[in-house]
Amino acid sequence: MNTSSPQLLRLHEADNVLTVLSTLEPGDALHLGQTVLTVGKRLPIGHKVAARPIAAGEKICKYGVPIGSAVCAIAEGEHVHTHNIKSDYLPTFERENQHSYFQPTP
């Protein structure tokens, strides 16, 4: 395991996202190498932040392999989640869009 900081875990050198190792609350300092940012929204354990600025359409890389694509530009340190990345295979289902999923086909 190659830990880039005690807060964040880099699983592979090619990765452009880092995993949050313990839940970070708003106002906590977020250490990204030399850069220190402030946590805006809560970042629960296991969630990801951008290791560097990521362009719209760029592959998101974790474990050294693509896990999806950015749907918009993502800033360094920003939460990388279902709102700004998408699968290259199958759409991701969340409870919020459950209603549309179960809507009867016209």
Binding site: H81, K86, Y89, F93
Partner: peptide, 17 residues
Amino acid sequence: HGSFAPGNAEGGLTTQE
């Protein structure tokens, strides 16, 4: 629908991959 439940996303997972 992939093999992906809402709790997976709440737990930090984003995509099937």
